[in-house]
C-alpha cells in the first residue's frame, strides 16, 4: 500500500532533476556567452589583448574579428576592455549540438564581419 502511494506520487510529481539548458531559462545574472555588435566597433583590438584564453583575434587592416567559442572561458574580460560597448555577455547558455558537422564546421561561430 505504501509502495503504491510512492508509485503514484512518482508518476505525477515533477522530476527532481532539472531540464537541460535548452529547455530551461538561464538563472538571472548568469554570465552566459560572448556576443559581438560590430556596428560601433573601431577594431582597436583591446578585447583580444585582454583575453586570457586568446579566443579573440582582431585584424585591424581587414577589419575582422574572429572569435573561437571553444577557446572562450567566459571570463568577460573582453566586455570590461571594450570602451565602445561592442562586446556584451548574452544571458544564455551555449546550446549543445547533436550533429558532429555542427560542432566541427558550421557550428563553430567564427564571426567575420566586413565593415559596412
Amino acid at each position: 500500500m505504501r509502495m503504491l502511494r510512492n508509485v503514484m506520487r512518482n508518476l505525477f510529481s515533477r522530476p527532481s532533476t532539472r531540464l537541460e539548458p535548452q529547455r530551461r531559462a538561464p538563472i538571472p545574472g548568469v554570465r552566459g556567452t560572448v556576443a559581438f555588435e560590430t556596428a560601433d566597433c573601431v577594431y582597436c583590438g583591446a578585447c583580444g589583448l585582454r583575453c586570457p584564453a586568446k579566443a579573440i583575434e582582431v585584424d585591424r587592416p581587414a577589419r575582422t574579428i574572429s572569435f573561437d567559442l571553444f577557446k572562450c572561458v567566459g571570463c568577460a574580460c573582453c566586455v570590461e576592455a571594450c570602451k565602445k560597448g561592442c562586446v556584451q555577455m548574452r544571458e544564455a547558455y551555449a546550446h549543445p549540438s547533436y550533429q558532429k558537422p555542427d560542432i566541427l564546421f558550421q557550428g563553430a561561430p567564427v564571426l567575420k564581419r566586413e565593415e559596412k
Binding site: 538563472i27 545574472g29 548568469v30 572561458v73 567566459g74 568577460a76 570590461e80
Partner: peptide
C-alpha cells in the same frame, strides 16, 4: 552551486577575484 550561478554568473570557476578586489 545555484548560489554561485546567481551571484557570480557561473557554477564552478567563478572568476570573481581580481587583483585589487572583486569583479
Amino acid at each position: 552551486m545555484d548560489l554561485f550561478e546567481k551571484t557570480a554568473g557561473s557554477r564552478i570557476i567563478i572568476s570573481t577575484c581580481c587583483i585589487g578586489g572583486v569583479r
